[in-house]
Every structure is written in structure tokens, then in C-alpha cells.
Design a protein around this nucleic acid. Structure first.
Lengths: 211, 211
DNA sequence: AGCGATCTGCGACTTTCGGACGAGGCGCGG
DNA sequence: CCGCGCCTCGTCCGAAAGTCGCAGATCGCT
């Protein structure tokens, strides 16, 4: 048995220890890959990156302490050559586009097979990008999607938190009439007529996160 | 190296192929355990159970085709000795209590370590039960928790779907006055004063699922 | 500079909600 | 039998939500 001259190094970031060790097993079975470090949240991830400068980072988006997209952004900030593969459960278009805009090289879902994951890693190492079919489809939809203004988004978030128009008005420092305007425009863009409906479709699109 | 006389058989059910192979690796490294089959949804799980009669079943709750709790129920229906470990990401009290009531022997979260998971499997094989600390805490809360009536729950679900009182009334075949009564009671039980707020806490408690 | 699109803000009006009462019927266990 | 919880339906009313029209500010593009 001969040791390969160089194995590409992988940083594994996910808040589920179980998945980390599972994926680490898979990767370490490959002759040309090995996991140099694991991290359970964004802060740990940045520290581990600085220390090990991995060739590629596998990153879950939903994490405590620091959100995944933010991690992508910071990684690319401190090292523009950082190759990040987003490996997550969810495929809301918001998260996909934000991750890609932040500089992720690939977006794959956790229902991917071990073989495909390894292929994906090698692709990214070779400078390619990789999109899960579902992610690509969502992305295509997004092009035609209406953008929300900052105010609309702010009002949406507060509304989804159960706040009344008056409370939203106070927090945003505006009149409750204006809140209504923003929400009215929001409703139109989302194709709904009530706040509860709005919360539903906004959640589906990943614009807000309830739990 | 000597082969152990009998290795306990494990059925692995999760819609994420990646996690399945990862966990399978972990389990198969143990001398006294081995994975006999994997399934990606509830229907496959039932079929695999009938075929292999595994000593223990590791089951994710959130799956396509058939929901996890339903799978637990059916497994225990056809074989009351079936030992099911729920292995999931979420810990809403609703899901925990429902899974345990359906007959699950253990409830663990995916942030568990590989070692602890193996311990959990052995515990369950030995006839014990196992609760993740977070799950146990939620369960304790649940004892004091107010129960919703069927009508309240139905109204809640429709409301969370964005329906107006009038629409809910139509779908339930009752007057919109009655809907208000149900929602009024619901609000009181949830400790809220508006529908949007109600959707929020109901989602947090796992009473409704938005996406 | 001019023009238009967009974001932001506001007032008035109608509809819907939510709270505070009450009240009858049904089923179940003490 | 009699309470008790659930479901049902009602009225009144104030408050909130949602719709309409309108206007100043800003920014990009020609």
C-alpha cells in the first residue's frame, strides 16, 4: 500500500456531530482526500480555516452562533481562493442565491449519495462549480422573481414575528400607515392578501425563518 | 480476529443518502452491530422491516411519502416488539411526545456523537430507553401544557395556511362566529393575541408545519 | 438637465379581527 | 342525575388590518 504524495485537505462544518463523522469516514476512504478538521459552528469554522487552510470547505448553512452564508462571506473575504461547498438540507431559493452570491462554489443537498459528494468535491478542487438539480431549478425561478425592498423585508420580518402594524411602526420609526403601504406592496409581490398568508409564502421562499 | 457469533441487525431509515452511509459506516465498525438494510422513506422502511426483521430501527421523522411517526405506529402495529430509535434534527415537543406515544424507544438528535449513538443503540437493544437531554426537557414541559381540542387544531391548521375566518368556516362547515370562538380559545391556550403570533408559537411547538 | 422608475411616506375609507358578553345541545364520567 | 368539557351560534363594539389614492425623495439612465 502506497501513500499518495498529496491528499487534498477538507474542512467539515456542520452542527451535527453525527453527520460530520459520517461524512469524514466517507471522505477519508478516498485516496486523494482527507479531513483536516471539523467545526460545529461558524466561529469554529473560521478559526479552523485560518489554522489549516483547507483546499475545500464543506459547510452546512443552518448553524448556531454564526449563520452559514455569513461564514461563506467571511471565508472568501480573508481568502478569495477559498473553495466552499454548501452542503445543506434545505433548498429555498433565498438561501441558494445568497450562498452563491457570497461565493460558494457548489450547492448540494444532503440527500446526495456518497459517490456524488466525492465527485462534487473533486470537481470543485478542479475549479469547477456544482449545483444540485433542485438548486439549479430554484435558481432559474429566482431570475423572474420580484425583489423586496429593504423596508418591505424589515416589515415582513417583524410581521412574521407576530408584531402588529403599530409595533412595527414603532420599531421602524415610521407611521403605521406607512407600514401598511410596505405590507401592501409586499402582499402584491408575494401574491397574497393577508399577513398570515404572507408569512406562509415568505417562509417557503426562505425570506424569513420562524422556528 | 474472531467474528462474533451474532451481530445485532439495524435498519436505517432517513431520506438523506449521505447520512445513511455515514451512519452505516459508524455502526458497521462496531463488532456487535451491523446494518442490514437502508430505506429512504416510510414505505420502503415498512417493506424492509418485513423482509429483514431488524433488531432495531433507526428512523428519521421528517421524510417524504410517509411521515416518521406514522411509520413508528405501523411498525409497532405489525410487530409490537419492534424497537425504534428516532434520530432526527428537530426537537419540537409535539413530535417528541407523538413519537414516544407511538412506541419509539428512544429519541435522539442528530448532533449526537457517534459514540453516544452506539451506546444508545446498545441500550435500546438491552431493553432500555434513551432520551436526548433536550428531548427530555421538552417532554417535561409538555406535561403542564394545555391540550388543543380537535376543532381548535383544525382551525389552527387552516389559519396557518393563510385562510380567513370565513374561509375556515366554509371548510369546516360551521359559522364564522364559531371559528372566532375556537380561535379565541386557541389564542388563550397559546398565550397570544393575534393569528400571526399564533402561527409562530404553533410552529415552534410543532403543532403546524409551514413549509 | 430631464425623465422615469422606485422607494418611502401619509390620510381616508372599508373590511376583518379579536374581546366580552351570553346561550343551547351533546356526550361522558362521577 | 348532574356537572363538565366541547362544539355551536349569536350580538355588540373597538381596534386592527387591508385597499385606494396621492406626494416628496432619490437614483439611474438618456
Amino acid at each position: 500500500m502506497l501513500a499518495p504524495p498529496t491528499r487534498a485537505s477538507v474542512l467539515l462544518v456542520d452542527d451535527h456531530a453525527l453527520l460530520r463523522t459520517g461524512v469524514a469516514n466517507i471522505i477519508n476512504q478516498e485516496a486523494d482526500l482527507h479531513v483536516v478538521a471539523e467545526a460545529g459552528n461558524g466561529v469554529e469554522a473560521l478559526a479552523a480555516y485560518d489554522r489549516f487552510k483547507p483546499d475545500v470547505t464543506l459547510l452546512d448553512l443552518r448553524m448556531p452562533v454564526m449563520e452559514g452564508v455569513e461564514v461563506v462571506r467571511r471565508l472568501r473575504e480573508r481568502d478569495p481562493r477559498a473553495r466552499v461547498i454548501v452542503l445543506t438540507t434545505y433548498d429555498t431559493d433565498e438561501e441558494i442565491t445568497r450562498a452563491l452570491k457570497a461565493g460558494a462554489k457548489a450547492y448540494v443537498l444532503k440527500d446526495i449519495s456518497a459517490d456524488d459528494l466525492v465527485t462534487c468535491i473533486r470537481d470543485v478542487l478542479a475549479g469547477k462549480t456544482y449545483l444540485a438539480p433542485a438548486a439549479a431549478a430554484k435558481l432559474a425561478e429566482d431570475v423572474t422573481r420580484v425583489q423586496l425592498t429593504p423596508r418591505e423585508l424589515a416589515a415582513l420580518r417583524l410581521m412574521a414575528d407576530g408584531k402588529s402594524n403599530k409595533e412595527i411602526a414603532n420599531e421602524l420609526g415610521i407611521s403605521d400607515r406607512t407600514v401598511k403601504t410596505h405590507l401592501g406592496h409586499l402582499f402584491e409581490k408575494l401574491g397574497v392578501t393577508s399577513r398570515t398568508e404572507a408569512v406562509k409564502v415568505a417562509t417557503r421562499r426562505g425570506l424569513v425563518r420562524l422556528e
